[in-house]
Amino acid sequence: MKLKEFFTQKPEKVQEEKDLIKFLSEVELFEDLTRNERRNLQEHLYQRKYKEDEIVFKKGYPNVVMYIVKEGELQTFIGSLEGENIKTIKPKDFFGEIGLFLEEERTATIVASKDSVLLGISKRDMNRFIDEHPRAGSKILRRLASVISSHLIATNQTLLCKREELDDLKKQLQEKENELNELKTTQTEEEKK
């Protein structure tokens, strides 16, 4: 064996790594990272394959790993698995990011609805990466903050819509009640007569 072969990786491994680094640039969270930074980050990623209907994690598990979806599709459930899913997670999305900041347990259950490939990064490795590469770390954190902010805005919007709907419903209910009361009074008056 030549010395050079000894110190370099196999060509297919190198290609795999290159693809992964390219893929990371398409993920919103890592958009701003330079190639070198992405290469360093890539070393901490665990590639996991999930079959259809396989559970990634359940609500109540400790927060350990954050995932980025490479391929496939996943569903989020807050209640029981039979209940309605809240969100569909598509490729280039990520989930489990809340765990980076809060020590709390998982807030939802994630199930693969198609065969999926996920890239997992442990919470500790992620925090360590941010500490060790402050420049890259600040880029990631800024992106994450903007993603979470936009989530918050969207949530606020839906909340507002829901509240308006609720107000509408309340108004309608009031009107119906009034109508009912009127009907009742007319009925009783008729009965008296």
Binding site: Y46, K49, V64, S122, R124
Partner: peptide, 17 residues
């Protein structure tokens, strides 16, 4: 960690760390 089944993946990382 690639040898570990999905079911025990998070647990093993947690334990290791």
């Amino acid at each position: 960690f690639s040898w570990i089944p999905n079911r025990y993946f998070e647990f093993s990382i947690y334990l290791f760390e």
